[in-house]
Amino acid sequence: MSPRAIGLLAGFALDRLLGDPRRYHPVAGFGTVAMKTEETWYADDRARGVLHTATLVGGAVVLGAVAERLAPGRAGKTLVTAAATWAVLGGRSLEREALAVHEHLDSADLPGARQRLTHLVGRDTDQLDASEVSRAVVESVAENTSDAVVAPLVWGAVAGVPGLLGYRAANTLDAMVGHHNERYERFGWASARLDDLLNLPGSRLSGLLTMAAAPSRAKQAWRAWRRDAARHPSPNAGVVEATFAGALDIRLGGTNRYYGNRVEHRAVMGDGRAAAPADVVSATTLARRVGIGAALVAAAYAAAQRP
């Protein structure tokens, strides 16, 4: 197998075993650089936002290319790829956060579950009941399995370390500035559009892997994908949330309340019952299977390319 294929599998295994580094996380370091850069050249202007995105994502790609080029031999390239893969994946930490919310729900500690849920979502959790907390967790697990596991593995398979770092840079910038509000509507436009574009292949692969990971519910997941995904405001999250809803036989979507009294009414996805606390555990199991499938697909693709 090629160094890229072995490195992707090793990095995925490190993420499953260790999760995110608790200190000196490279993604957090990138976020700090992005914040300081934004302070320097922010303007309520699309052109400045394009400059911001191109500079930071381009810089991450160049850094990845240099690291890959300077890595000594096949062993060096394998280690660099493994380290980069571990740094950009977030599957294990996502699972831990989801299960931490479930622990509160399982012990009937609804206030604790609401508070812990704020680690996963940006919506107002103060008035959510146990079903709505469960729905929010499942939606976050579905979307972030695609964003933080499948999509980076896809770009790692296609473009190696530059693909891994460039994708994570774009995804991080979208989380920071890709918002529909007064400050970022224009400045964050480029980051949001680039993230949408880069997540297209990963979200579709996530949908297919969700069906493969839940074969007994594959038809229902496919039906939810075809019928409901396009009604989601995100062209990518809709695919994964719809297929998760079908695979778990639950309903996702509905009314979301955000801080600042903003209310968003999203289309309902799936035909099943309302989400329950037990579905959080089922969703993390499904997400784990999807992640394993993505790692195998990415490694197989990388192995089929030239070393």
Rank of each mutant, 00 (worst) to 15 (best):
S2P: 14
R4E: 13
I6L: 15
L9Q: 03
A10E: 15
L17S: 14
D20K: 00
R23W: 11
H25K: 01
T32G: 06
T32H: 11
T37S: 05
E38M: 02
A43S: 15
D44C: 04
D45Y: 04
D45K: 01
D45C: 07
D45Q: 04
R48K: 14
A54W: 13
L56E: 08
G58L: 08
G58P: 06
G59Y: 06
V62I: 09
G64A: 08
A65P: 06
V66T: 09
E68N: 11
G73I: 09
A75I: 10
L79Y: 12
L79S: 13
A83P: 04
V88E: 00
L89S: 00
L89G: 02
R92F: 01
R92S: 03
E95T: 06
E95H: 07
R96W: 11
E97H: 04
E97T: 05
A98Q: 03
L99R: 11
L99T: 10
V101M: 05
V101A: 05
A113K: 10
R114Y: 10
R114C: 12
R116E: 13
L120F: 15
D124Y: 06
S131F: 01
E132Q: 15
V133I: 11
A136C: 10
V137W: 04
E139N: 06
S140E: 02
S140M: 07
V141T: 05
S146G: 08
D147F: 02
P152Q: 05
L153R: 03
W155N: 10
A159I: 02
V161I: 05
L165Y: 07
A169L: 10
A170G: 00
T172W: 02
H180Q: 08
R183I: 08
Y184L: 05
E185F: 05
R186Y: 03
F187R: 14
F187L: 13
G188V: 06
L194T: 00
L197A: 12
L198Q: 04
N199Q: 08
G202F: 00
S203Y: 13
T210H: 04
A212T: 00
A212N: 00
P215A: 00
R217V: 10
Q220C: 10
Q220D: 14
W222Q: 12
R223K: 08
R223Q: 10
R227E: 01
P235L: 10
T243P: 05
A247P: 04
N256L: 08
Y258P: 03
Y258C: 04
Y259I: 12
R262Y: 02
V263K: 05
H265R: 14
V268N: 10
D271A: 12
G272S: 03
R273G: 15
A274R: 09
A275I: 07
A283F: 04
A283Y: 06
T285S: 09
A287Q: 09
R288P: 04
R288Y: 07
R289P: 01
I292L: 06
G293F: 03
A295W: 01
L296P: 01
L296D: 09
A303T: 15
A303D: 14
A303Q: 14
A304R: 14
R306D: 13
P307T: 10
P307G: 11
